[in-house]
Design a protein around this nucleic acid. Sequence first.
DNA 1: CAGTGGTCTAGACCACTTT
DNA 2: AAGTGGTCTAGACCACTGA
Lengths: 241, 241
Amino acid sequence: MIDRGPSLTDQVKAHLKERIVGGEFDGGRIPPETELAAELGVSRTTVRDALGRLEHEGAIIRRQGSGTYVNPPGLQIKSRLEEIWSYEQVLQDHGYTPSVEVLSADRRPAGDADAEALEVAPGTPLLVMEKLFREDDVPVVLTRNQISAAMIDEPVTAVEARAPIFDFLETHAGRSLAYYVSEIVPTVLDKHHAELLGAAAGVPAIRFDEVGYDSEGGPLVRAVSHFRDDLVRFRLIRRRA
Amino acid sequence: MIDRGPSLTDQVKAHLKERIVGGEFDGGRIPPETELAAELGVSRTTVRDALGRLEHEGAIIRRQGSGTYVNPPGLQIKSRLEEIWSYEQVLQDHGYTPSVEVLSADRRPAGDADAEALEVAPGTPLLVMEKLFREDDVPVVLTRNQISAAMIDEPVTAVEARAPIFDFLETHAGRSLAYYVSEIVPTVLDKHHAELLGAAAGVPAIRFDEVGYDSEGGPLVRAVSHFRDDLVRFRLIRRRA
DNA sequence: CAGTGGTCTAGACCACTTT
DNA sequence: AAGTGGTCTAGACCACTGA
């Protein structure tokens, strides 16, 4: 049941998650760590690592001296803000069939803010790609990704631009997107964005202003995304620091 | 240098954080884990736990086979969304002197949404407290906390309502707030909120709709908060799930 | 008091990067 | 080949809960 490939911890975590969402632990109580360790044939440390991650996700609650319990309110969260990766995935989590349309893929010179975020000189040519994501043909997310053109080897076709931005960077720049630093900005949709998103101008919406970095902390991409708030809601768990 | 009280891991983490923000690791490179362990007189596991948390906060980056490095972009984040606890603290992080004004502290019956979130019957009396937070006399955050009145033993004075909500719950309900499940909602300020926040009506703003739970997963408080977006911006680090 | 999760240790071995 | 972080083990002891 437990083989090599994904780490043992990952396997144990996935295994427990399955049993939890499957409702196996009716009273809400999860077996003691020592018991799980024996049952799965791994060390208690490995079990603890897995449980720690599930706790962090909000799926379970651990109480010293008492036990480990299922946490229904935490289980309800679908799109965890700090984990979101591709918008296709977000839309799927909301139960829809996503589609992507590439609106544009041009070169434009970097403005001052672009230049600072991407650590290039102002005026440096950028590849700018705008994409619209729909769920069941209803537009939901509009994104603009900006990448230093020097990173990309060849001209980009609309088909290639359809790929999720991290796949795109992997393929065309040989760089791996490790994390985003994201700022959450409230806006109202202007005429242009409202039209594309199929909403009324002046409707409140969330905008993400983000910079994506590689595993070495170097900036790769600047992204701005607009969401149809009536269709996508973000939730997260906040804890004491 | 290392004594009992806070856990060893916490001490090591705080110690390293200090050296990092102090700029001690100029080349950006942090010593190997074995070296840190020997230097601090703790096990490598303890050092790794501390480094793991710093990595999660975005303060450092670890690269297998290579080393551990300071991560300047992550260090710049002040208010980490998933860690925020009291608004006083948030405002201090932004470099201001916070103050609190209690606008009201009444009893009102629970509406349907309140009742569902707090797991009480509709119409159950709730204690509703509205507070306005200012930084240097400029209003920034407006919050409304709703608590089942049955949890509170005595009538509440405005002075008592000044306390941060988790202190208040500790003192007056004997319950400990463990975490929030928060929903981020874009809005425009209506006349009432705009007036209180000293902004123009119709300005975009972020609203948090949250439910606070105790360590056993029971709902304690329903909170709604409005922010002056031009004064408080929320940032977070997003990683691959 | 027994049982639980929380902390910490010492050490082994692996995967990966760098020289 | 040497050095680094990544994974995992086995076991000790502590802090806390609950019967």
